[in-house]
Design a binder for these strands. Structure first.
Lengths: 168, 168
DNA sequence: CAAATTCCTACTAATTTAGTCGGAAATACA
DNA sequence: TGTATTTCCGACTAAATTAGTAGGAATTTG
């Protein structure tokens, strides 16, 4: 019984977006470099996240990805389902035709297990996780090492205004 | 997030042993035929179950496998751990060195998830499952179709006595 | 001794996971 | 308008895991 790296990468990357949520879109290049995941692989994962309405992409320079909903409305079960296909440990995908067209002896066991798994995971939102004590500080440290910055929205906007003023 | 067939086969096979517990050893040939799993593959699984002291093998004609402990002292988590290696969804096998030698941002999440999974599964014993309403009847039906029989312990003992009397 | 059964090791096939490559489309900015 | 940056897309490849096969040795019953 295991979680594939897809699921782990997905959740970790989404947490990254959540942490930097107020600093504009996050590029996959950043995440790739920070977490040592290949860019193309991340692109594939984010294609799935986008199809499941969990993120939205912004093209062009200064673009990247941002959460498509507030972090307290995205839970871990959704993310894993999106990238990892499903949270389901039954053989028959809960169709009940596991053994020669009938339910196998252990069908109910797997169904119940799947349910509990899903319930557990859907109770954990990105917001809950990001707001854990220490997480934010840890993220800032990491960002410094990696040359990234967590900007408050106001700072980001000021920066934008400055750019516009300079160009005009 | 999924359970491999190893885990499912393992649990299903163990349930088979539990159901036929009072009828002497169960041969892998029986299980193989009944559940459509290849004999050699079952042998590999049972090698692991044996190494983990969940079953014991009896060689020779009339042999097979039996539970090495009463069914109420064997839980599903043990079985899955034995055949499927582990019930653990962290990347680092809970060593805490997931990201460049340090704990990754989501480490605690995976640890907690693994714990809850294990707790849930270890709360389910083979006995609980076998004693569910309807299971025994279902198993008897299946056995008839497959030409197997569930003998009550007393019947099995009488059979044994008869054999001994005949041989003496 | 013959048959039934576990026990053991090595090999193979299929599937999934992880990753690569090359490029098209959109956008910001100069 | 052109260039750099970024998402977006599809096809390909490599590695790992899972599932299954094959063949035979060891043990026990009768």
């Amino acid at each position: 019984m295991r979680l594939s790296t897809k699921g782990r990468y997905g959740v970790t990357a989404m947490m990254d977006l959540a942490i930097h949520d107020n600093a504009g879109p996050v590029t996959l290049a950043d995440i790739s470099q920070c977490q040592g995941i290949s860019l193309s692989y991340l692109e594939q994962l984010f294609a799935k996240l986008r199809k499941n309405n969990l993120v939205e992409g912004v093209r062009g320079p200064g673009g990247g990805y941002r959460l498509s909903r507030p972090a307290d409305q995205i839970n871990v079960a959704e993310i894993i389902s999106a990238v990892d296909e499903k949270v389901d440990v039954t053989k028959c995908s809960n169709q009940g035709d596991c053994q020669n067209g009938e339910r196998c002896l252990t069908h109910d066991l797997w169904t119940e297990l799947s349910d509990r798994l899903y319930t557990f995971l859907s109770g954990i939102t990105l917001a809950q996780f990001v707001n854990r004590p220490g997480i934010h500080e840890l993220a800032i440290q990491r960002d410094k090492i990696n040359g990234r910055f967590i900007l408050a929205r106001r700072q980001a906007e000021m920066l934008n205004q400055n750019r516009h003023q300079q160009s005009n």
